[in-house]
Design a protein around this nucleic acid. Structure first.
Length: 851
RNA sequence: GCCGGAGUGGCGGAAUGGCAGACGCGGCCGACUUAAAAUCGGCCGCCCGAAAGGGCGUGCGGGUUCGAAUCCCGCCUCCGGUACCA
């Protein structure tokens, strides 16, 4: 067994050369069809979905950061015997393609398809187990025709509608959904330009219908921040709708209804004025002739200000009196009506009752315009004198109504309920719920997207394109004039069409759909990507979805992740699927930033190209390094320092597997067992290390704790290294440990493990089979058990000694051993501990002594 | 402002009520080598001490507990989201 050897005489160990190993195995796996999923297979299914990339041209390291651990999950689940489906596709419509087309005068399709081709190559170089047969490219007419089909079904079901409205408009990107406008200064999520307002006829999806249902997360497991963000975005508020009436005046007959929404109906007696949003339809009618000039100037100013700094942080209140009054339904009081842009046209009823004593914004407005402030809610014990002038915004349980007529003395909550009930009896109000969520504006004034299948006819209006005429294809050759104006609007061949109803000359809708529609259902299409006649095979969809696990970035928390839930519910309501949610569980990995801590982008010049790293270290090292960097949900600035450590680790795995008997000339202890260990103990220690690692690594894979998973495999390889060249190296326990190490490492570093595995099998007299078809190893708990254990002993909470006891020692034995320790006796100095605590079943002892 | 997340060695990070700093980077020392690289081994939170050992230490201040990086209260800083939502 023991060999003496002169290293200079040994044949040199073959070098670990990932660049030659990796492409060879990738080709072999493809040849074997190892990752083609048979969707008919009845084994337990595991649909693993990762957000499909936008084909911007190059994969950067951030893509690998999402996809590498996802691939490891797929491989891990396969080793557990599950039928795993891991598809991939491309989010191929969108603005960058169009901008590139304008700049270079090429077709967006050509630009996009060339990028996709490059990204396919890069994705393959990761060694990921994507099932390429399921690939979906959204710019393919066979895909986007179903966007059109869905739109028509939603139209029939009343879930889609057209409306003229003020929309957020980016000078570069055209119409934006509300979610796509970012920040205080209202900038475009995509290009960062200032967003303006425009009045346009637009198509909407009626997603507000699902507001309450979307607040129910019982069937979907989201990271907490995503759930919170969606909840806030939907923004449900309970309160009352109260009907004020306009008062008659010299210029106005009065009696018109002015509805307001409030969350504080209990403060109705404190309403001292009313405010309408600039967009409110009654502003014009209510304005007194002598006020008209000023009001119109204000409205014009508000329009301009939306384009400039209306939302600036100082946000001083502005507004103008209309010269009209409203009647408070609860006490008949007449209060003045103002128009002010701090009231939003799109929320609630676009009008508020202003209660300056109990609302910060109303208070600021009242102060500025010298309007009365009347307290109507008081805390018990507050004197009448305390109530003058100041505002009281807080809302607590023990407050009562004052200055509120018959409701005085009631608790605010109870008073509010009674006020609403009394108004309701008179038809002057009712309990109401309002949401912040708006319907989804899907029209985009862009070429590179799904054409909205509508034809405008002078006789028949907006006519849906008949289903049999789908898809409405994007013309391939369009004329880019170097401007952002949608070229479809001047493409006569596309525009001119006969009305499907009467055959009259008519024109096509030139708007295309928001690309978030493409990404709202692509994983259903993956399951039957070439299905004709329906968007997907419903039986396959029912058996494979909701998706088991979805992985991707948190930046989509209130966009993609909300739109797709809405879409699924709409599909359900037109009878297409039976599920309520698209996915069961979503995980957000962190974001890799550039070395400068900023988002990686070509313009910043901080992009890390994975190809360079793969060339230098191999895909396995890059994969493993990305997993090892830190917790997966954390991300952080990119720094390649440390990648060498991971590369060294793989080299050590290589050396251990191929050359167990080597003795390191630089190590004085090489070839000798650790102090105090005989061969039997060494063998047991090897097995214990391997199985303990297996126990922990299994838990880490399950919890997506890839960084600690790698650390523990490094520890195991360090242990093996300690025994390399000793009498136990190459023995059965050693062999088992190496085997477990390779199996545990296989999901993360698939190439090197496959290479080493394929060399082990013939050595063991077995036929070749891929390590990726092997089963996850079985844990042998008896191997983990040890005969002794170390117990830290604390005195007053500070560790003062460590004692070794038999691993089956009971509490009394541990206590006795602790008290017998010379060090402890010295510290106790004759005192008797008044308390002895053993934590975790004797894992730690704490002796508590009083001074 | 509001909502969410985070703050631990020179650095990435580990430990979620029980031995703080696993694993890795980096640094220092040593071995191997004619030499260098590669490789291998050892040491490295701060302060006192020759050592044994002791004191301090997880953003700051308090608290709960036999015991706190971890739980509670009050702050500070950074990152993400949001922007007058009545």
């Amino acid at each position: 067994m023991t060999q003496t050897q002169d290293p200079r005489e040994r044949q040199r160990l073959e070098r670990y050369d990932p660049v030659s190993i990796e492409p060879r195995w990738q080709a072999r796996w493809e040849e074997l069809g190892l990752y083609k999923t048979n969707l008919e297979d009845r084994r337990e299914r595991f649909y693993l979905l990762t957000m499909y990339p936008y084909p911007s041209g190059d994969l950067h390291i951030g893509h690998w950061y999402i996809k590498t651990p996802t691939d490891a999950i797929a491989r891990y689940q396969r080793m557990h015997g599950k039928n795993v489906f891991l598809p991939i596709g491309f989010d191929a419509f969108g603005l960058p393609a169009e901008n590139a087309a304008i700049k270079n005068k090429i077709n967006p399709r050509d630009w996009t398809m060339a990028n996709i081709e490059n990204m396919r190559r890069q994705l393959r170089s990761m060694g990921a187990t994507f099932d390429w047969d399921a690939e979906v490219v959204t710019a393919d007419p066979d895909y986007y025709r179903w966007n059109q089909w869905f739109f028509l079904q939603f139209l029939k079901a009343g879930l889609a509608y057209r409306q003229k409205s003020q929309v957020d408009w980016c000078p570069n990107d055209g119409t934006l959904a509300r979610e796509q406008v970012e920040g205080v200064d209202r900038r475009c999520w995509r290009c960062g330009a200032k967003v303006e307002k425009r009045d346009l006829d637009q198509w909407y999806l009626r997603v507000t219908k699902y507001a309450d249902e979307l607040l129910d997360f019982s069937e979907i497991e989201f990271p907490d921040p995503v759930r919170t963000q969606q909840t806030n975005w939907i923004g449900r508020s309970e309160g009352g709708e109260i009907v004020f009436e306009t008062a008659p005046s010299a210029h106005h007959a009065g009696g018109e209804e002015l509805r307001v929404f409030t969350t504080r109906p209990d403060t109705l007696f404190g309403a001292t004025f009313m405010v309408l949003a600039p967009e409110h339809p009654l502003v014009g009618a209510l304005t007194a002739p002598e006020r008209r000039a000023e009001v119109e100037a204000y409205l014009a100013g508000a329009q301009v200000q939306t384009e400039i700094e209306r939302m600036s942080t100082d946000r001083e209140k502005t507004g103008v009196a209309l010269g009209a009054e409203a009647v408070n339904p609860v006490n008949g009081e007449r209060i003045p009506i103002f128009v002010a842009d701090y009231v939003l046209g799109g929320y609630g009823t676009g009008a508020i009752m202003a209660v300056p004593a109990h609302d910060e914004r109303d208070y600021a407005f009242a102060e500025k315009f010298g309007l009365p402030i009347r307290r109507v809610v008081a805390r018990p014990g507050e004197e009448a004198a305390d109530l003058v002038g100041a505002a009281y915004i807080a809302h607590s349980d023990d407050e009562v109504l004052v200055n509120s007529g018959e409701y005085d003395g009631l608790s605010a909550d109870e008073g509010g309920r009674r006020i609403v009930a009394a108004l309701e009896a008179r038809g002057k109000g009712k309990a109401a719920v309002t949401y912040r969520l708006r319907d989804w504006l899907i029209s985009r004034q862009r070429y590179w997207g799904t054409p909205i299948p509508i034809i405008y006819c002078e006789t028949h209006g907006a006519v849906p394109v008949p289903e049999e005429d789908l898809p409405v294809r994007l013309p391939d050759n369009v004329d880019y004039e170097g401007s952002g104006v949608n070229p479809l609007t001047r493409d006569e061949a596309f525009l001119n069409v006969a009305c499907p109803i009467g055959g009259e000359p008519a024109r096509r809708e030139t708007d295309t759909m928001d690309t978030f529609i493409d990404s709202s259902w692509y994983w259903y299409r993956y399951l039957s990507p070439r299905q004709a006649g329906t968007p997907f095979d419903v039986d396959v969809v029912e058996s494979w979805t909701p998706v088991q696990q979805y992985t991707g970035g948190a930046e989509h928390a209130v966009m993609h992740l909300l739109y797709a839930r809405e879409w699924t519910k709409m599909m359900r309501d037109i009878g297409l699927v039976r599920q309520n949610e698209p996915w069961r569980r979503v995980f957000n990995q962190g974001q890799i930033l550039g070395a400068d801590g900023e988002r990686m982008s070509k313009s910043r010049g901080n992009v890390q190209d994975p190809d360079d790293l793969v060339q230098k270290y191999g895909a396995d090292t890059v994969r493993l390094f990305l997993m090892f960097m830190g917790p997966w949900d954390q991300g952080g600035p990119w720094s390649p320092s440390g990648i060498g450590g991971v590369y060294r680790f793989l080299n050590r795995v290589w050396a251990l597997s191929l050359d167990p008997h080597y003795r390191e000339p630089g190590d004085p202890d090489a070839g000798t067992l650790p102090d105090g260990q005989d061969e039997g103990a060494a063998r047991a220690a090897l097995r214990a290390a391997a199985h303990r690692t297996l126990r922990e690594v299994t838990g880490d894979y399950e919890a997506f704790h890839f960084n600690t998973m790698v650390a523990k495999l490094m520890e195991l390889s360090n242990t093996l290294y300690r025994y390399r060249g000793t009498s136990v190296a190459g023995g059965p326990e050693w062999d088992e440990a190496v085997r477990l190490l390779l199996l545990m490492l296989a999901p993360a570093a698939p190439h090197i493990t496959e290479e080493l595995w394929s060399r082990r099998l013939p050595a063991a007299g077995q036929a070749w089979s891929s390590i990726h078809t092997a089963s996850w190893p079985e844990l042998d708990l008896s191997a983990v058990a040890e005969s002794t254990r170390e117990v830290p002993v604390q005195v007053n909470g500070k560790v003062r000694d460590r004692i070794v006891v038999a691993s089956n020692a009971d509490a009394a034995a541990v206590e006795a051993a602790a008290l017998a320790s010379p060090r402890v006796r010295e510290l106790l100095a004759g005192r008797t501990p008044h308390r002895i605590i053993q934590a975790g079943g004797g894992r730690l002892v704490n002796l508590v002594v009083r001074d």
